[in-house]
Design a protein around this nucleic acid. Structure first.
Length: 237
DNA sequence: GCACCGATGTGCT
DNA sequence: GCACATCGGTGCC
């Protein structure tokens, strides 16, 4: 196999490409590849489901009530990872959009593992589990959902702020591997998937949010089995 | 497949 | 205190 793991700057998404409002960037991220390189190996997923959060104007965004210590990275320059901890046990990772000073982000909800599946499986189902999990352990479930995606890729708060646009980063964003001929490419070297091209992009309401549920800012690839099942907002006791 | 529910840490009112 | 950009288990159809 001649798969070259080390990307060059041209293989990665350009920061300017992400320097737009999250709802514009989000569908363009589908088909792109998120790579995590750690001491124990490399895991890569092709993104199949994302959700946009549009900063201070968006009641569902962590930035709705302004800048805090937790969401500080979202206010920084585009192309960095905003990682947060939620529900007492899960991490979620976002791609920061828009320039320094403006908060906007895209939550990475699901992906298809295309490299390092064994490592991803060990992270999701460690041998130290006291009981063998009864649930499905199929390949499609390895990164199906934002918490699972972070688990499979070994993403935790240490990667909050990581730069996704530089080749030597532990967490990187590659342009889609399937590209049209060079002549058809734009100047930035980035060619997002588009409706009617390789895959059909669908959109709908965001998962698990109460306010701001009207806007269809969740985007996914039609027919992809790795897309997470829709769960509406649920009240808890 | 669906509905419900508990686990669990932390940010913010 | 309470709400949470979640998940895995159980029970049921």
């Amino acid at each position: 196999v001649v798969e070259a793991p080390e990307p060059t700057a041209a293989d990665l998404l350009a920061r300017e490409f992400l320097d737009r409002p999250g709802p514009q960037v989000a569908p363009d991220l589908l088909g792109c590849v998120l790579e995590r390189e750690a001491a124990d190996g490399l895991v890569a997923v092709m993104l199949t489901e994302v959700e946009a959060y549009n900063g201070e104007k968006d009641p569902a965004s962590h930035a709705y009530r302004g800048r805090t210590k937790r969401n500080a990275v979202m206010y920084g320059p585009a192309g960095h990872a905003y990682v947060y901890f939620t529900y007492g046990m899960h991490f979620c990772v976002n791609v920061v959009c828009m320039p320094d000073g403006t908060a906007s982000a895209v939550l990475l909800r699901a992906g298809k593992v295309i490299a390092g599946e064994d490592l991803a499986r060990r992270r999701r189902f460690p041998a130290s589990l006291s009981r063998e999990p009864k649930g499905a352990r199929e390949s499609r479930d390895l990164a199906r959902g934002p918490g699972r995606l972070c688990q499979a890729l070994g993403i935790d708060r240490n990667l909050d702020g990581a730069d996704l646009c530089v080749p030597d980063s532990p967490l990187r964003l590659r342009a889609p591997s399937r590209r049209p001929p060079a002549g058809e490419r734009g100047g930035e070297g980035v060619t997002p998937l588009r409706s009617g091209q390789e895959s059909l992009i669908l959109s709908g309401p965001r998962v698990g949010v109460r306010e701001g549920a009207e806007v269809p800012w969740r985007f996914w690839l039609a027919g992809e089995p790795t897309v997470s099942p829709y769960r509406p907002y649920a009240r808890r006791r």
